[in-house]
Design a protein around this nucleic acid. Sequence first.
DNA 1: AGGTATCCATACGCTTTTGCATGTAAAACG
DNA 2: CGTTTTACATGCAAAAGCGTATGGATACCT
Lengths: 207, 207
Amino acid sequence: MARKTKAEAAATREALLDAAEEMFIQHGVARTSLEQIARHAGMTRGAVYWHFKNKADLFHAMLQRVRLPFQDLVEALDDPELAKKPLEAIRLACISGFEHLERPRYRRVHAILIHHCEVFSDIDPLAMQNEMVEESCGALRDYFHCAARLGHLRDDIPPELAAQLLQSLLGGLFHDWLRNYERFSIYEEGTRLVKAQLSLMRASPSE
Amino acid sequence: MARKTKAEAAATREALLDAAEEMFIQHGVARTSLEQIARHAGMTRGAVYWHFKNKADLFHAMLQRVRLPFQDLVEALDDPELAKKPLEAIRLACISGFEHLERPRYRRVHAILIHHCEVFSDIDPLAMQNEMVEESCGALRDYFHCAARLGHLRDDIPPELAAQLLQSLLGGLFHDWLRNYERFSIYEEGTRLVKAQLSLMRASPSE
DNA sequence: AGGTATCCATACGCTTTTGCATGTAAAACG
DNA sequence: CGTTTTACATGCAAAAGCGTATGGATACCT
């Protein structure tokens, strides 16, 4: 086979990752062979082993194309007024997260990570999920603590509890949606649910 | 090998299922061979192929040992007074569900179904999860509708929304706990969160 | 322009796992 | 008590998938 230009090589690498996503979603990670991925991209296993060390390495590369830490979502809002309205910051960050998730690549990769792969070699999807949850839950706690100090939170709801409630709500919604994304839009449903939940926990204006 | 009595044969069948649970939890479903399961139960593959048609059949048998539909949890309460207190019925049913889930076998099998298996042959764990969610969410909706009619629900929260909020909350908590059950007790945390959430949605006694 | 590194296809050996076929000793049955 | 069926263990053939070694044509560099 003839050597390709650098741009072409990079393109085949992306094509392999795209093919891997589709096959992983369709047949699960463990049940798809490198041969299947290569064929689906119009290549052979040789291409795969050139660009990636093995299946775990390919999997890692696939994950690295999508990353969205909660903190970044808040900072991306970039509105100095939000420091004084932590509940609003939480709401907008959630909405921003929902927007990201509706992009096909983000949705696919997260669906793979959560629903279509088991532990294999050095990849532990549960540990990765724990990291994601840990990170976003920590950020939520900070904002709810801030809200409590400002008196924006109902005084019978400690900030820790508020963070846990919202965290579980988001997690449940996330899983439900990934399981069958065509049934509803996580952007619309998520916006509704988060708004409702926050309004339940917000201090009534009278006090 | 000598033939065993019928009771002994049934015992080895259970032993094989137990071994399968442990190996599936530890290494994932796809990565454990029938040989590993048999050896871990002190048997050979011959025993496995005698009791089960193949891996999918064994998997199905494993699932069939644990079943807990939401409706049964409510009926098991068997308290005629609860018909007049739907929110309390929901709370107690959730608590009862948490109790079931803390039993090792229930926890293990659900963890396998949700976190340690992909699609394989005719088994589709996502479809099973959808059934479970659909079933429990439907029951929740009924009870919240009942609560709304009785005026037990805040009038700014439609019963559908209340059901979705609680459903997502339960789902998120469930996934978090299964991911690492040693970190907290789903019975304690679940009781706390459900109580808090229901109290947020309950109509204030003044009205 | 020549040499070299790159990008990928092809081929080979190896391990793992599956499904079945066969063997067998004791339980179950009449 | 003899026969049949049960409840496995053992052995074998086949396929699948992985990792690597090799080959080859061309882009890239100096």
